[in-house]
Design a protein around this nucleic acid. Structure first.
Lengths: 347, 347
DNA sequence: CATTCACCTGACAACGTTGTCCAGGGCCTA
DNA sequence: TAGGCCCTGGACAACGTTGTCAGGTGAATG
């Protein structure tokens, strides 16, 4: 009864191989290969016999072996920060769409904003010999990628630039977006504007803060330290920041938020507040138009980010060898009400 | 100058192999393998020499080759409907988390609700010899998977059951959720309740419709054909359905929606309507609590779905051989206002 | 000093596929 | 009918890794 496994026991689940198919069809190994790959040079009759054997045995070509022989895996890795963040959904899909159109599969994983985990994941992908990598970096030092890139792994960074290496990157215009969002609030009469952003480790967080400061400076407005809060996007910290900005002796009359998670928390916090406070959020959020007032946002085009990055990656894989460069995707301010509220009466 | 590539040109980007490392370190091939895999039986001195060669050459083990030899790829495939749908984000992440804890990578793709594309994707994953599959099925016939399952590919279906084969499945309680949502509306005095759901090809859509009908029947209420709309979740179709239900001679006073995308569209449509209409939505949506009124929903626990499925998958991979079974994850009704509105005055 | 034994080390085959190359046979033409 | 050519088919090696097994060295023991 016992199926005699020779030494250990590879052969996956005892799947038939081309050899088995060849034996059953009474042809040579290579002929089976030709049929499977629709290569020319096989008589219709022989082809039919081989095909029957394939169907009868339930043979399916082992791409692992194929990859080993051919040197290309037809798969790319996508490392993002959190698979569950709605901002990355459209990006993920756009990348998948492009990969699919190039016949490649997508392997992905989350770094959870942890540089070590990012590196571990990226190197695991390299060990699988993905043809290319699209990375939303969590860390600031990507020199560990140098040997990989030199060995031919095409690499494109998205949303944030690479650290300490020269690589392609596709970024949103964080600085410009934050600046125009802030200017929008200033234009509506606000002079004390708060900024609540993500951790200063994160490139986009810093850029957005810079944009905010630039707009304030341009308007000749001071920025009080108590109006700026950077840190994790955990709801309780953000909530606390909102409360302290509003309870201060010189309370802010408007807030600029640094990303979608912060925006959502701030909307909640402001709903519980008595005076209206203006709000402009970075990243669009679903249903923002249905709230009262609608949430004015600086929308990023996540799908374009992903598509652009993936297209650049495949252009590299097709041999494009021009110097690495950065593409900046513009943002768009969508006015819905919350950013157009006038300053509420002072204390 | 020209690097003489012997025949074609495999060797990825001319990456060093264990052979190269061995030559440089002046040791045998297998010794390098031992060092790389931290196997016992290597003198510290030899190990150091090998390690130096590894670092100098920038060697990284080729897992493709390893996989071929070992028979396990330590990767699983996740096929879902749309990577960008916020409902699948937490599910995706939960699966990834479990995979990660088992040292496996996640390959994923979208079926776009197209059975052919689902099959194509699944078979591509099988050709890569993923160890297991987690599938949110788009099609209704999965007999094409039989040879794969027989060959040892562990397979778990999520959100919707497998078609025509006996396989593990982890489902939400669509029927019970829709029934309790409908009963909730009935309890608040509604007698004419509409249902707007997804395409009847989709299992959950049918189950939810069944739950709705069951609750109506249980309450002794008739269901007029014009109150039920099944089809794509495209906003214009859904919008049209809302309008026609509200403009009918016997207009509905409440609506039950079949999924998150429908709910969002209906919220928009109702906002433009003059009379208040009660609403209960299937699936929770972000910010639902901030709308006015808050949106009452039947919440599904997508993360639990994903985690449960992934855990079952790995239990199978670890050898669990009990009969395939179905797990049903309960839903939870979250009352926020929209589902508690009384029927508005008749015409 | 010889023998045993433990421990390291390396040669070799195998995983399943594809590229190369050659052999055999049929068919056309001279 | 012989010669040559094209078309089909198969043997073989190679991709980079790991399992098996045998050889070799040094220390410990009788």
């Amino acid at each position: 009864m016992a199926d005699t496994a020779r030494h250990s026991e590879p052969r996956y689940g005892n799947r038939p191989t081309m050899k088995d198919v060849a034996a059953r069809a009474g042809v040579g190994l290579k002929t089976v290969s030709r049929v499977v790959n629709a290569e020319p040079g096989v008589t219709p009759d022989t082809e039919r016999r081989v095909q029957e054997a394939i169907d009868a045995l339930g043979f399916r070509r082992n791409d692992s072996a194929r990859v080993l022989r051919k040197g290309r895996t037809a798969s790319i890795g996508l490392v993002l920060e959190d698979l569950a963040d709605p901002f990355y959904g459209p990006l993920n899909r756009a990348v998948e769409e492009v990969a699919r159109s190039h016949g490649a599969l997508l392997i992905n994983g989350s770094s959870a904003e942890d540089p070590d985990r990012e590196q571990e994941l990226v190197l695991a992908l390299c060990a699988r010999r993905v043809d290319g990598l699209i990375i939303i970096p969590a860390g600031h030092d990507h020199r560990y990628l140098e040997p990989e890139i030199k060995a031919g792994v095409a690499t494109v960074f998205v949303d944030r630039p690479a650290g300490k290496i020269d690589a392609d990157a596709v970024l949103s215009d964080s600085f410009g977006g934050a600046r125009s969002g802030t200017a929008h609030l200033v234009a509506h009469g606000h002079r004390r504007i708060g900024f609540i952003g993500d951790q200063p480790r994160i490139h986009t967080a810093v850029e957005r803060l810079r944009g905010y400061r630039a707009a304030m400076a341009h308007a000749g407005l001071p920025v009080d330290d108590s109006w700026v809060s950077l840190g994790t996007t955990a709801p309780d910290r953000v909530h606390e920041a909102v409360v302290s900005m509003l309870k201060a002796p010189e309370p802010v009359t408007a807030i600029l938020t640094g990303n979608n998670r912060v925006t959502v928390t701030v909307v909640r916090a402001l709903a519980a507040h008595d005076r209206p406070v203006a709000l402009v959020g970075f990243d669009d959020i679903e249903l923002a138009d249905l709230l009262d007032p609608g949430v004015t946002v600086i929308a990023q085009d996540a799908a374009t980010l992903g598509r652009t990055a993936a297209e650049r990656l495949f252009r590299r894989l097709d041999g494009a060898a021009d110097a690495p460069n950065q593409v900046v995707v513009p943002t768009r301010l969508i006015a819905r009400g919350s950013g157009e509220l006038p300053p509420s009466a002072d204390r």
